[in-house]
Simulated assay, not measured.
Amino acid sequence: RSFAIHGNNQDGWTANFGKSPFVIRIYDKQKEQEQKGLETSIKNRVELELHANRAEQVISEWFENDNLVEYSLSILYTYLWFVDEPIDEEELKGTHVRERYIDSLKTMPAWSLLTSLGQSMKFVRKPKEQSVDSILSWIMKYVVPSLEVLKKTGHWHEVIEAMDKANLSPEQEKLIKANLVNAIT
């Protein structure tokens, strides 16, 4: 019902289907990574952006049935469908014949291929190991501009106070100790 396409040939195209709390996003992952100076073998990417209840449903399905791939693909099948023929809006509006009409439409081969290949995918959680250098790089790129705004608007002292009161996780404490050991040696 709602979609937006933005981008260009140089930077790549992004298509968003739906609105928050539920968006299906398809974009040129290779061009996105090239702009960051990185390489990837992934050409295009399909993402589900979920918030609130939708996100909780997916997490519940993952924990209860360890079936995230099939569940995610069922979301794609339910909410996004590319067909190789014009859609008759009047037929689509009919409440009793809607499902029968949808089932009669011929799915676009590329969409069938994507969704069938998706069945063989697996979701794997591999947390990235952080380093002090990666944290510093991220802060410099994404946080420093916002800190500058706070400094120039008189809120810098609040940031310093919050840092002094921050509770660090065990992983963060380990990073500090490892960095101190490296500095001493």
Rank of each mutant, 00 (worst) to 15 (best):
M108E: 10
I102G: 05
I102W: 06
I59D: 01
K31N: 07
Q35F: 10
E56I: 00
E64I: 08
E91R: 14
K31L: 07
L48K: 01
E56N: 02
Y101P: 08
L68Y: 01
Y77D: 05
S41K: 13
Q57R: 10
R98N: 15
V97W: 12
S72N: 04
K31G: 03
T107Y: 05
V69I: 10
S104V: 09
E61G: 04
E61V: 01
S60R: 12
G94M: 13
I42D: 11
M108T: 07
L68E: 01
L73W: 00
A55P: 00
I42C: 12
K31Y: 08
M108N: 11
V97E: 14
D66V: 04
V83Q: 03
K29A: 10
D88A: 11
A52Q: 08
T107S: 10
D88Q: 07
F63L: 10
G37L: 04
E85Q: 14
D103P: 07
I59R: 02
N53M: 03
F63P: 02
N67L: 04
E85N: 09
W81Q: 04
R100G: 15
E85A: 11
L38S: 09
R100F: 14
T78A: 09
L80Q: 02
N53S: 11
S74F: 03
E90P: 02
P109E: 10
K31A: 07
V69Y: 00
Y79T: 03
E91L: 12
I59W: 01
L92P: 11
K106W: 04
Q33I: 05
R98M: 15
K93C: 11
S72Y: 02
K43N: 09
Y79K: 09
S72P: 09
L48E: 01
P86W: 06
T78E: 09
E99H: 15
S72A: 14
R45K: 12
E39S: 07
Y79A: 05
K93E: 13
E85Y: 10
L105M: 11
E32F: 11
L73N: 00
A52M: 05
V97R: 14
N53G: 07
A52I: 03
L38D: 09
N65I: 06
L48F: 04
K29N: 11
D28A: 13
T78R: 12
E47K: 03
